[in-house]
């Protein structure tokens, strides 16, 4: 089945429900689906759990969503940055919950969700406060921590080009979390700079096959 080609970001995010877990791509602003987030702000869904590497930069994109008070909980690896004043304020006022996850565990937990893995043991974080309360096991003489998958109700991803099948091509380091998030959500929505006809993307260069993609919108 082809991905649904949406005429606007507003159409693409129309079905996001209150209380959803939303996976948001991007490393800082590279790969951040700003137009989809702006549409989600207009759409009004609230009480969201957002999974993203950072917790917003400046006042646009994820930071704007946070500023509107729509996010109950952030799951991320690196909230504190020079330009994360929106998150910092909410956190200090106790108005947002934070689950801090080492970046590789964040990526792998979503990869596991998308790949049907029930949980996995990883050495990352073993013996640190971020592994407290987790099941551990010594494997090959090294302490490992059991990590659970992170599933999203929705993934919002910023990419470069798509075809009408929903096949996705990314650009440079803006790829980052897009490919794993696309696999880990019940509904994957991708904004791209350009939608091309089927057959126009080099099949060897497709990073996210259309099977993972539900909606595409050109911005």
């Amino acid at each position: 089945m082809s991905a649904r080609l949406c005429v606007s970001p507003d159409e693409a995010v129309a079905e996001v429900e209150d209380g959803s877990t939303v996976l948001i791509g991007g490393f800082g602003m590279a790969g951040m689906p700003v137009q989809l987030i702006d549409a989600l702000i207009r759409q009004g869904a609230t009480g969201l759990t957002v999974v993203s590497n950072n917790a917003g930069n400046g006042d646009t994109g994820l930071a704007a969503l946070l500023a509107k008070g729509r996010v109950r909980k952030m799951i991320c690896s690196f909230p504190r940055q020079v330009d994360s004043w929106v998150f910092d304020g909410l956190y200090r006022e106790g108005r947002i919950e934070l689950e801090l996850v080492p970046q590789g565990n964040l990526a792998e937990r979503m990869r596991a969700a998308g790949a049907g893995i029930g949980a996995f043991f990883t050495p990352t974080g073993a013996g640190t406060p971020l592994a407290e309360g987790r099941e551990t096991r010594e494997i090959d003489g090294r302490l490992h921590v059991l990590e659970a998958p992170i599933r999203g109700d929705v993934a919002l991803i910023g990419a470069h080009r798509a075809d009408r099948m929903g096949n996705i091509v990314y650009r440079k380091t803006a790829r980052n979390f897009g490919p794993v998030m696309a696999t880990a959500a019940r509904s994957t929505i991708v904004q791209v700079h350009e939608v091309v006809d089927i057959g126009e993307l080099d099949p060897e260069a497709v990073v996210t096959p259309g099977l993972y993609v539900d909606k595409v919108v050109a911005v």
Binding site: S77, Q103, N105, T128
Partner: peptide
């Protein structure tokens, strides 16, 4: 505000 990124 804790931040760990890829350090671990």
């Amino acid at each position: 505000i804790p931040a760990v990124g890829g350090a671990m």
